[in-house]
Design a binder for these strands. Structure first.
Lengths: 140, 140
DNA sequence: CTAAATGCAAAGCCTTTGCAAGTCT
DNA sequence: AGACTTGCAAAGGCTTTGCATTTAG
């Protein structure tokens, strides 16, 4: 099921306002926020919440498979409530991080397996460039 | 040209034994070592060299385009003297990091461009699984 | 000689940990 | 009530920085 409270209870985890806020924020954004961004965004609603709680919650959500951690090369992680490991697109212009269509992934894996004898299990794929908006604005 | 001393001199950088050792080590390995690994490996030949020097040298080598930084998701970077951004394969069994054939990359980019309007400029592609050796050893 | 690099230690940044106080069930 | 979670501050791991000393050109 998709109801967070039920999932947490099933696992013997407590349902706290902070946890609900964090997972709900992640589920309602496409921005792939960092812990810091989550923290700041929720600060208005939870002024006393600490960054440590955000990290602990994210750790827990990772462990129960509700969230995945991304590393697009920024020195801090980003988080994604979409847990199937889909490719990402990162814009050099505006730093947005977009998802790449899932069906693209199948095609990519098909290509790779032509070139390696590895038994492939997972992947972290980051494509960098300019998003449709930025590629028009930019000079070169 | 490919002669390190000449490249450094051309850029007004000094040729030091430490720098030569680091770049030579990177050019002669396929292991994609971390700064720590480089440091430890060279310690026998350069007992007084500090980790800071390794980091400063790697930073410099990045800047002049002789080395690229990889992040395979380990909490520390790895370094690669092969600076074209080729895909990597990481083995869950033995943690080795292999290169994927360059021609695979062209195919992959061709696939991706079918699915996005991004203007693609670069990519960091990590495929995880079991290398040919480990996939035979493992149980599942 | 003198500009740049090294090596040491200290500082920084992101993340994790310890623990008392507070909250969920 | 009892166990888990929060929030604060301190600690950790990797990387960077500052600065006096040393080295390359």
């Amino acid at each position: 099921m998709d109801d967070i409270s039920s999932i947490l209870k099933e696992k013997g985890l407590k349902v706290t306002p902070q946890r609900l806020a964090i997972i709900n924020m992640l589920r309602n954004t496409k921005e792939h926020p960092s812990a810091e961004t989550i923290y700041k965004t929720l600060s208005s609603d939870f002024p006393t919440m600490s960054l440590a709680t955000v990290y602990k919650t994210l750790e827990m959500l990772k462990n129960i498979g509700l969230v995945q951690e991304l590393n697009v090369g920024e020195g801090s992680f980003r988080y994604d409530a979409n847990v199937n490991s889909h490719p990402h697109l990162i814009c050099y212009g505006c730093n947005r991080v977009d998802d790449l269509d899932d069906s693209a992934l199948d095609d990519l894996l098909g290509e790779v397996s032509k070139y390696t004898d590895y038994l492939l299990k997972d992947q972290k794929l980051y494509f960098y460039g300019y998003c449709p908006e930025c590629k028009n604005k930019k000079v070169n």
